[in-house]
Nucleic acid binder design. Structure first.
Lengths: 239, 239
DNA sequence: ACCCTGTGGAATGTAAACAATAAAGCCGGC
DNA sequence: GCCGGCTTTATTGTTTACATTCCACAGGGT
């Protein structure tokens, strides 16, 4: 397996690897919102030339993580609360539409797969594994989108969920949130199995709105709890 | 004005200009679907270096016009009918949602602007100006999306409509189609003005489906009429 | 004290050279 | 005559070098 892994590693361009590295840097907070991506410094740090760094930055611009200004460089972009709300609304519409479609087209295997995911998430809640729950949550939503059979919608949904996840990581920290969310998953799944498209759409949209509410309370909590933010803010990439 | 124009022209990077040029080449058929974008040839032709061409190609990948394969280059991408159908479905959901939201939030100026666009389109139909009608059509849909107040949804809609327009340009060639489409615009506009969200959503989704149907008949006509396709296919960019 | 302007340095935009990869053509064997 | 492997060649990926732009800071004037 490690040879396959190595081959796959080697089979992607430097730009891709640099892009992943930059994502990690942004994700970890080493590159805080508003920070400029210094091409020569990052290139030195990653052991590559400026070219791949430039390409990676442009790619990240397309995913919405950075914005590039002519002759000024690429800056880490941060979602405003308002933008997050708009994305939640978009996702709500897409997820509702997908659920409605899946309600009339769901196969036995698909139902089993979804049920297995939800069961696994319950186990992880019981086992006190929030990271695992978070992964399962993403898996559930993406499976619903994939099973609904519209690749374009799925791509848009996944894309925007990724953007949200920059901010959303801690939304499930409160223990009750996870159980609550998974109960909504179960109700949605039952509607889908029952073939009730209208109800499935309704529940899916409702679930997304609940997620938005959880997100907002988490944000509010984060704001109230200032953490050692200013310190992290000052962490820059230096030569 | 020409100084402003010149300044604006100069104020964008070469990559942007190259990207526009490549789009034009693809649009015009000089780079037919499946053709490879030869970096050195295009660079020579446009009088720039390979760097901007590469960046432009990567940007075009994001917009869906080309796909790039590692160590093989960028290839002009063509939408399959199935992908087009999926995009129509996505747009239907988004446009319906936007119309519903606009129905409860539409201001007087917005209503006037939309009505003006529809009126202009009727004039262009009467005046035998299909190009103008097409532009107005785009304008109407994008205004509805913009007025609905969700920038994320608007961006997704515009993005995907652009992809479709590669194939869709001739959908309105049949004279009756234009009048039909604009009548649907009027009905939708009335529902919005009446503040009837459910009806607006319904009409907007219906309108998108009608657009899909027009697209399909246009495609079918195009397929039946083989045109001198093979000749165009051979037109390559040579040094 | 404030503002404006000119200069210096640093960072990006662009171009040209180098390396590595994949496709195409050629040759030999079967 | 056809197929498989090798070699060649064209093209992309990457690095390096050069040109241009912007920002900060110092200096002088008001």
């Amino acid at each position: 397996m490690s040879t396959i892994q190595a081959a796959r590693e080697a089979a992607q361009s430097l730009s891709s690897k640099v892009q992943a590295a930059l994502e990690a840097l942004i994700w970890s907070g080493a590159l805080p919102p508003g920070a400029r991506l210094n091409e020569v410094t990052l290139a030195r740090q990653l052991g590559v030339s400026r070219g791949p760094v430039r390409e990676a930055a442009r790619a990240l611009e397309r995913t919405g993580l950075v914005t590039v200004i002519l002759n000024r460089g690429a800056f880490v972009r941060t979602l405003t609360i308002d933008e997050a709300m708009q994305i939640y609304e978009l996702n709500s519409v897409l997820f509702g539409s997908a659920a409605a479609r899946l309600a009339v087209s769901c196969t036995g295997e698909q139902a089993m797969a979804l049920r297995a995911i939800v069961d696994r998430m319950d186990q992880r809640i019981a086992g006190g594994d929030p990271e695992g729950f978070f992964a399962g949550n993403v898996e559930f939503h993406e499976h619903v989108m994939a099973f609904s059979g519209n690749a374009a919608m799925e791509a848009v949904y996944v894309d925007h969920t990724r953007k949200l996840s920059m901010l959303r990581r801690r939304s499930f920290d409160r223990a009750g949130s996870m159980a609550e969310a998974n109960a909504e998953h179960r109700r949605l799944l039952e509607s889908i199995l029952a073939g009730d498209a209208a109800s499935a759409r309704q529940l899916a949209e409702q679930h997304t709105r609940s997620g938005r509410a959880r997100f907002l309370t988490a944000i509010a909590y984060q704001e109230a709890q200032p953490r050692a933010a200013t310190a992290a803010e000052k962490t820059r990439i230096n030569a």
